[in-house]
């Protein structure tokens, strides 16, 4: 290993030193081959989706199928955005996802801080509730929630879609884990300086939570963007549909056989989150490692 060191120093290190087990543990070539073939299989539905969405309807349904589009056209996308109301669905999805994200970032970091650093009666019970809430399936609450939102005049509204998801247990758990790792001395020093407890949270702790807030923000946005059951229940008229609701209802409704159109719709739903994920994936991977939960 020492003979390799000199060479390695010249080039930028490829892997952390601790993972360098010496020559006898070199990765076998077949493993790369298998992993890249596997990756190809995993990605192929996305490639197929994108390529098919650019074909005219007749070519989409041709047997045998074409791989690369013989005619590249944006007709399907034009139909989505001019004949159908995809701009509205897109806006609805974005509004709901952004509001839910903002709410979770604020409310979850507040409770996360209290659970991580403050001592108060009821703390253990509160933390148990947070963990318990992680287990409640959406299917258990949606019927009474629908009755509730109807009676307070929020059915068929974006606010009705947003409110129940404004502060989730996952965010609390993530923020608590992160804030616990911040040194207590910071808080004590601020207390000695005479700062009030809330002030300590907002001006000492919160500015240090950047990485965790970024992770929480991205994950919440993705989850909300893809959320289906509750928006499906709340939205009753087309102008309140989110993208997944619209896509699902079109795909089982009168547009069921317009493959090109539906695939273009899938691209519209999937592409923004794939882009966000690829740009910010580091934060997401950190978040999963930090909490063990998606």
């Amino acid at each position: 290993m020492s003979t390799l060191t000199a060479e390695k120093q010249a080039a930028p290190p490829k892997a952390p030193a601790s993972r360098d087990g010496g020559e006898w543990r070199r990765t076998p070539g077949w493993l790369y081959a298998v992993l890249f073939v596997g990756l190809f299989l995993v990605v192929i539905p996305f490639v197929w989706m994108l390529l098919s969405s650019l074909k005219p309807e007749a070519e989409v349904r041709s047997v045998p199928p074409t791989w690369w589009p013989e005619t590249i056209t944006l007709d399907n996308y034009e139909t989505l955005f001019t004949k159908l109301d995809f701009p509205t669905y897109f806006m609805n999805s974005a509004i709901v996802a952004l509001a839910v994200t903002a709410g979770n970032m604020v409310f979850c970091s507040m409770l996360g801080y209290a659970l991580a650093k403050l001592d108060f009666p009821g703390k253990k019970a509160l933390f148990a509730i947070v963990l318990g809430t992680l287990m409640i399936p959406g299917v258990v609450t949606f019927v009474p929630l629908f009755v509730l939102t109807t009676n307070i005049g929020l059915s068929n509204s974006l606010i009705g879609m947003i409110l129940p998801f404004l502060a989730g247990p996952f965010g609390v758990f993530l923020m608590r884990q992160f804030i616990q790792s911040l040194p207590d001395e910071l808080i004590q020093a601020a207390r000695i300086d005479g700062a009030g407890e809330l002030r300590i949270f907002f001006s000492v702790i919160l500015p240090l939570c950047g990485p965790a807030l970024a992770t929480l923000g991205i994950l919440t946005f993705l989850t909300s963007w893809n959320n289906f059951l509750w928006p499906l229940v709340v939205a009753q008229t087309e102008d309140k549909y989110t993208l997944p609701v619209a896509l699902a209802l079109y795909s089982v409704g009168q547009n069921a056989t317009q493959y090109g159109l539906l695939l273009a719709g899938s691209v519209v739903v999937v592409l923004p989150v794939l882009a966000i994920f690829l740009v910010l994936q580091r934060h997401i991977m950190q978040g999963i490692a930090m909490t063990g939960i998606k």
Binding site: L39, N226, V269
Partner: peptide, 16 residues
Amino acid sequence: GYYLPVVTSIVAVSVV
């Protein structure tokens, strides 16, 4: 790469 499907909408990938 292997994580990509997780971030996508189940509705959308079901259509695909």
